[in-house]
């Protein structure tokens, strides 16, 4: 099932949760909506599910108007951040719920329902928990049951709202891999919302980066990381060094110091220069675009993270390989292997 969203607007009072969002999701895709809290990603997901209604705009599934249908008719599987399992039902009954509430005409008989639930519990590898209640499960188990419950109705689309947000780091990593392989297996069009860039880049085929109700960039995980389209995307994804610079007369200046960087193709005026922490190459003093004094060094496994006071006045953090040990007090030259400049402040 493909999904198309056109010019979606949603306001809560004076707050614009969605401000003209356009998005196409292809059949069988696993798409991540990535953004900080308040960026509108959950609102977008809830509108697609039919749990919220837009002020204006269109949503269609396979070309059919989805807004004409309620959540009940849309046949969309929704997985909530806090699981929303039915607390008074066993795991088995939770998964069976969607099958039991079907209209009598199409409802399956008890034996078929039991077989289907068993199959789903096997799929999420929790068949041994069938008789437990949600309160007796761990967070990771609850989330897998919630997923099994959503899959029971054979949804046309699977929507996951921060599915791993409430879990601890280790479980989260396991579930990510598991979700990706599960998607490979069942191949249903899926959208999941996350504020965790690592999660989005690791799990999704395509990533949609959102901020303040607008889509900043849509692209493959490599695209959004390697060629961020906006300053926001650059600073939100990956760890970036951000420097306020001025572009004038073909020169880029930081503070009052001209940098040894070409200003070609950039509009004059106040701008921001972005460099990835690990893209700053360390050289002897006098080499490279920047110069600075090492203030402080910490080691993180294969890299050393150094706090460097640039001679322009700014202090930045860089990640350098450990082959040349840095020491506090060293004066070094820094050359950005790659950098991007975005106009504005």
């Amino acid at each position: 099932m493909s999904i198309e969203v056109r010019n979606l607007v949603k306001k809560f009072g004076s707050f614009k949760a969605l401000d003209g969002v356009d998005l196409k999701v292809d059949n069988g895709e696993l798409l991540a909506l990535l953004g900080p809290s308040g960026s509108g990603k959950t609102t977008l997901l809830r509108i697609v599910a039919g749990l919220d209604w837009p002020d204006s705009g269109e949503v269609s599934f396979n070309g059919e108007d989805a807004l004409a249908q309620g959540a009940r008719e849309r046949h969309v599987g929704f997985v909530f951040q806090h699981y929303a399992l039915f607390r008074h039902m066993t795991v088995f009954e939770n998964v069976a719920f969607g099958l039991r509430v079907q209209p009598r005409a199409i409802r399956k008989d008890e034996a078929t329902i039991r077989a289907r639930v068993k199959e789903l519990l096997d799929l999420v590898q929790l068949d041994w928990l069938a008789d437990r209640y949600p309160s007796q499960l761990s967070g990771g188990q609850r989330q897998r049951i919630a997923l099994a419950r959503a899959l029971a109705i054979e949804p046309r689309i699977l929507l996951l709202d921060e599915p791993f947000g409430a879990l601890d780091a280790k479980v989260r990593k396991e579930l990510r891999k598991w979700l990706r392989s599960l998607h490979h297996e069942i191949n249903v069009t899926s959208i999941f919302v996350t504020h965790d860039q690592e999660e989005a880049l690791e799990v999704a085929n395509r990533v949609v980066v959102m901020d303040k109700g607008k889509i900043e960039q849509i692209g493959s995980p490599d695209d959004v990381y390697e060629s961020p389209a906006t300053a926001f995307v650059h600073s939100f994804i990956g760890e970036s060094i951000e420097l306020p610079v001025l572009i004038a007369d073909g020169l880029i200046t930081l503070g009052d110091r001209p940098l040894r960087l070409a200003a070609d193709g950039h509009a004059p005026g106040a701008s921001r220069l972005f460099v990835r922490r690990h893209d700053m190459l360390v050289g002897p003093p006098g080499s490279g675009a920047f110069e600075g004094a090492v203030r402080h060094v910490r080691n993180f496994g294969p890299v050393q993270r150094a706090e460097v006071a640039l001679s322009g006045g700014e202090t930045i953090e860089i990640d350098a390989p450990r082959d040349r040990e840095l020491r506090a007090g060293d004066t070094i030259g820094l050359e950005p292997r790659r950098y991007r400049i975005f106009a504005g402040t």
């Binding site: 009940r72 806090h82 039915f86 607390r87 969607g98 419950r149 109705i153």
Partner: peptide, 12 residues
């Protein structure tokens, strides 16, 4: 949330 879950699962 539980009500929303129920409705998205097709309950009236």
């Amino acid at each position: 949330q539980e009500e929303e879950a129920a409705i998205s699962l097709g309950a009236s």
